[in-house]
């Protein structure tokens, strides 16, 4: 009896890119990334890493990577698949542009894609995407699939016919168990995704890949949304900085305390 894991991975502009690389189009309500490469959302990479650790410590584990969007980079998916996936499923289409879909539409489309991926025991998602930052799709997907969900995992393991999760809390963690099939959203604490070898990247081209279009899902994205973006703007973060000085660095350190006290900050 094998264990089928689905990992949902979204392609996003590299979140480590400088602010200038995010071009805000206020009229079209779109953010366009300039000069930075697409990457797998870092939290989804954590989810794939969690899947790999389960695969290492259990027999007969199969990982299917699912990605949905517009213009998915083959190289980005190939690199992720090469880490250790056994199959991939891509859902591509112009109307699957991340800026056109809210979390509610995304979750419904993804649920339809998961249904097309065959059976699953465990679905792993990142805690949130690095572009939309909402943190809704994982929980929504679980609700739509009718399976239990656990969020913010720092550790995921399978024991018997259940999943055991260490869930991150502000002051520690809690252990939560759920029967399979289940969905878990994964946090950065799980650890970074391992690198595939060059050899594995070459071999990954032979790993089975299914490519679907929107028509295969039999859903109309324009009817699925619940939240609409009506304006987009650049944030104003700049403040007027009071520079504190001193004859010596030691004096400057003391003067900083005095300035903070004078202004009643401390």
């Amino acid at each position: 009896m094998g264990l089928n894991i689905i990992v949902c991975a979204k392609q996003v502009p590299d979140p480590e890119g400088p602010p200038s690389s995010f071009e805000i189009n206020e009229a079209e309500l779109k953010v366009t990334a300039r000069g930075i490469p697409p990457v797998i959302n870092p939290f989804d990479e954590n989810a794939l890493e969690a899947a790999m650790r389960i695969k290492e410590s259990h027999e007969q584990v199969s990982i299917t990577l699912i990605s949905m969007g517009k213009g998915i980079s083959k190289a980005v998916i190939l690199k992720a698949v090469a880490v250790g996936a056994d199959a991939s499923l891509l859902v591509e289409g112009d109307s699957l542009d991340a800026s056109l879909l809210d979390s509610f539409a995304t979750a419904r489309l993804l649920a339809a894609a998961v249904a097309r991926a065959g059976g699953y025991d465990l679905v792993l998602c990142g805690r949130q995407a690095a572009d939309t930052n909402a943190g809704l799709v994982g929980l929504g997907l679980a609700q739509l699939l009718g399976i239990p969900a656990i969020t913010l995992a720092q550790k995921v393991d399978v024991a018997g016919d259940g999943v055991v999760v260490e869930r991150v809390l502000p002051d520690g963690y809690e252990v939560v168990e759920a029967p399979l099939p289940a969905l878990v959203t994964v946090s950065g604490e799980v650890g970074d995704l391992r690198y595939p070898s060059l050899q594995a990247i070459k071999a990954a081209k032979a790993i089975p890949q299914t490519v679907l279009g929107l028509a295969d899902l039999d859903l109309d994205p324009s009817t699925l949304g619940r939240v609409r973006t009506v304006a987009l703007a650049a944030p104003s973060r700049e403040r007027r900085c009071k520079m504190v000085e001193g004859e010596t660095p030691e004096e400057a350190g003391r003067n900083l305390v005095l300035a903070l006290r004078q202004d009643k900050v401390i």
């Binding site: 973060r237 700049e238 403040r239 007027r240 900085c241 009071k242 520079m243 504190v244 000085e245 660095p249 030691e250 004096e251 400057a252 350190g253 003391r254 003067n255 900083l256 305390v257 005095l258 300035a259 903070l260 900050v265 401390i266």
Partner: peptide, 24 residues
């Protein structure tokens, strides 16, 4: 970071922090 701060000190933390801590 100074553009988004209310208070700033230019200097090496190794030289600044001991007197900052003592003054606190």
């Amino acid at each position: 970071i100074f553009k988004v701060s209310d208070y700033g000190v230019v200097g090496e933390w190794k030289q600044l922090l001991p007197s900052f801590t003592a003054a606190l």
